[in-house]
């Protein structure tokens, strides 16, 4: 599915990355603990989280996360938004809680992602 579909399914606002809505996104990872994200999330996934600080953007950058979806109607502050713009990471904001967000996307065919670096390198 495209990021545009994610926006539709979640009735989300686009905070950063209006120009990237045609990006293909097929896997998702939901977490509030950035170490959990760092431990398991795969490049190119979307990150669903209730956290809105700079560390979410940094974590997304480190892992080449395709886009961030802030849940529960959370908004990031101006500095965090600027950091996301600078690092070219799209941010969407949905009013749904994480449970509902993940549920709706899963029901529409988005799959989870779990990848250890070791598994990735074994395949290469």
């Amino acid at each position: 599915m495209k990021l545009r579909d994610v926006k539709e399914i979640l009735d989300a606002d686009v905070i950063v990355g209006e120009d990237k809505l045609d990006m293909e996104v097929n896997t998702a990872f939901g977490a509030d603990l950035m170490s959990d994200v760092l431990s398991f999330a795969k490049s190119g996934s979307i990150l669903l989280t209730g956290l809105t600080n700079d560390q979410v953007i940094r974590t997304a950058d480190i892992l080449d996360i395709a886009a961030i979806v802030l849940v529960r109607g959370k908004r990031a502050n101006a500095d965090t938004i600027n950091l996301a713009k600078e690092l070219k990471i799209p941010i969407l904001s949905t009013k749904y809680i994480l449970f509902e967000t993940a549920g709706r996307l899963y029901a529409k065919g988005m799959v989870g992602c779990v990848e250890k670096v070791d598994n990735a390198s074994a395949r290469n």
Binding site: S43, D54, Q55, R58, T59, D61, I62, D64, V117, A120
Partner: peptide, 25 residues
């Protein structure tokens, strides 16, 4: 406020040097 800035820099240096993506990661 600056936590992560060093890692972002190191990542971009390694990317520019063309190391494999799993090594950079």
């Amino acid at each position: 406020n600056y936590a992560g800035i060093v890692s972002t820099s190191i990542k971009s240096i390694l990317k520019q040097m063309d190391f494999p993506s799993n090594v950079v990661r």
